[in-house]
Write a protein that binds this DNA or RNA. Structure first.
Lengths: 245, 245
DNA sequence: CGCCTGCTTGACCTCGCTCAAGGCCCGTGG
DNA sequence: CCACGGGCCTTGAGCGAGGTCAAGCAGGCG
């Protein structure tokens, strides 16, 4: 049963939003997945690709990024475990952005044909997958606002709050500490500020005792304070919203 | 048949991506819609709302916007005719952003219950609606990059290219001219620059003969040149992509 | 006629960028 | 075991794109 970790992750993810019927659970267990490993800094899919499968991240952290003609790169999303970063390719033939692993990733891939059949047979699960892509879109909206309107320090605080909130629901948090393997360059590409200024912004957040960040561990001593600094409200993550279908 | 304009618009939109089967066409014609008018600057739905219907814009222009604690507003999307701006509420219970009419809008609303039944009965149309929300997401991704990495002038050029490309496919273009009723404030809130600087950026584009903009009409004399100035490529709009379902 | 909304212009200032260099940690090979 | 190299982080200095504040102007509408 090599697909066990995937099945467990998927079921856990669903049951945060609604209760699975026995048939639905069975359908998930029947899904044929392929486990793959992608090394750090390697692409999972690239702009222009026409993938025939979508995948869930089981371990590691990836991002969606766009490289402009100028060579500058913008990260438009981070993906952590239990995310389906390229689910969109199910109904978007050609990838319009890159998806790259930022740390080594373990992913579970499912063929689109299989997924489409799965969707017509399980309307509720179809609705749920659709829902997941809508949450991704909600995050993009928020990022537009983040990058468009906030000061550098606020952007960073906001981003860290988001990552923390998302890690928490998938059980990656340990008290107020979170595994953290993004570089300052990653963060700067996600927030649209230079690496140099990212460094200074992080220092300022540290000085204000809002975060501590070292050796792959992020600590947020006072959640409320950081949220305030980043003008963050978790609503847009739609985390505990029951599914209606 | 008050829903005629809606039916025609919806069918036209579908057939740009795939050929409707007779039953599908019939299902669309059977959809009960309510026509409504929203005055300029009035909300269509508001952050925090839990709508029970979704709507298609038949006339006018609307936007999705987020207002931050600071009072600053970020527009994260524009919606023109044939768009389903709040389709996302079908599977996202609580609105995480506002949708407001920027000019007077004529919209066609459909109950979510109806839409859900429609989706389970017509898997291909379900896939198509899902697809539409994914295109919206692709646009957000691009906006993150636009606001995060480009200079003011590039941002404006990019935005205008996008609007032009989208207007063209819904038949709003007349040669190289487009109806244009957004204010400079709207544009500045969409690109994350100040109104003052938006004004100067537009002037610069005018001086470079890339656009002319007056009395509700935008003219793009040389499409290729403006695209180059805005580093724009229409791929992310997924305009003529055949549906696979 | 007067007001309000949207456009335009000028002057000044600042946040964040760029360029440049140095330090630290860790993995690799001699 | 140590030297070397390459990421990544850090710091300094100068500069510029774009923000803010303020005021004037034009046109449409009650």
């Amino acid at each position: 049963m090599p697909n066990r970790p995937f099945v467990l992750a998927f079921i856990a993810k669903c049951e945060r939003s609604f209760s699975l019927a026995p048939e639905e659970r069975a359908a998930i267990e029947r899904l044929p997945v392929r486990i793959e490993y992608v090394a750090a800094d390697r692409p999972i899919v690239r702009q222009g690709d026409k993938p025939s499968q979508s995948s869930m991240i089981l371990k590691g952290i990836a991002c969606t990024s766009i490289t402009l003609a100028s060579g500058r790169r913008q990260i438009s999303a981070f993906h952590i475990q239990q995310d389906f970063p390229d689910l969109l390719s199910l109904h978007l033939r050609t990838m319009d952005s890159d998806m790259v692993a930022l740390t080594e990733c373990k992913i579970a891939s499912i063929e689109h044909v299989v997924l489409r059949a799965f969707c017509t047979e399980n309307p509720r699960l179809c609705a749920f997958l659709w829902h997941l892509t809508l949450v991704d879109a909600a995050i993009y909206r928020q990022w537009v606002a983040n990058v468009g309107q906030r000061s550098a320090e606020q952007r960073v605080a906001h981003l860290l709050c988001e990552l923390a909130a998302r890690m928490r629901v998938v059980g990656m948090a340990d008290g107020s500490t979170y595994p953290f393997h993004l570089t300052q360059t990653d963060l700067s590409e996600a927030t649209g500020i230079s690496t140099v200024h990212m460094n200074r912004s992080l220092q300022s957040l540290r000085a204000r005792k809002l975060i501590s960040l070292q050796k792959g561990v992020l600590t947020i001593p006072d959640d409320r304070a950081l949220r305030k600094a980043g003008d963050f409200s978790a609503d847009y993550l739609h985390q505990a919203e029951p599914l209606r279908a």
